[in-house]
Amino acid sequence: MPILSCENLTKQYGAVTALDGVNLNIEPGRIVGLLGPNGSGKTTLIKIANGLLTPTSGRILINGMEPGVETKKLVSFLPERTYLANWMSVKQLLNYFQDFYEDFDRERAATMLAHLNIPETQRIRQMSKGTREKVQLILVMSRRARLYLLDEPIGGVDPAARDYILNTIIGNYDPQAAVVISTHLIADVEPLLDEVVFIQNGHILRHTPVDQIREEMGKSVDALFREEFRCL
């Protein structure tokens, strides 16, 4: 059974159609790139999967269930923006995640934080932007979730932080779980991906294994993306 499944998923904001009849299945064990230009519907799709938005029509199922309390136990979400309260210390955040998420592996998070020399007493407001993003990612990836939804995890961070983030995603790979990475920085994430989903104007243009693109078309996903979205 797919861990994420969209059936004719449509979302309209007033007159604007953000998602238009999207059909998509994502299987466990896969790392999937959700690729598209800004405003193509990536974030809308991720927000609906998290229950932060309700679809206009069609439906989305997480492990066979509509988004709700039960699916939130299975989904670990990294939003595009910093959402951690500034005043909180690392330790308080660990307590918070441990309190609310049964699948939170505190030891794993503590190990990763120790590797970065981030003391648990440090507060979010004392951190640089790059460190904040890393802490957020550590918290999100330390859950033993079934579906990780990462919205622009490497946007706006320096190359060293980018490598760290990508390595954290690889290091936490779990064959039982799917990872969806939305980004427009394709060259950086391409070696991580099993499959890519191209999305434009709320339509899925393609959903293909990366190997197939390279084998059949003899080009990288990045090159293909540039071609298919050239006119934009």
Partner: peptide, 14 residues
């Protein structure tokens, strides 16, 4: 497989 994948910066499936 996992640490080799990490070293290479690629998906463990790959």
């Amino acid at each position: 497989v996992r640490s080799f994948a990490l070293e290479a910066g690629i998906n463990p499936n790959t």
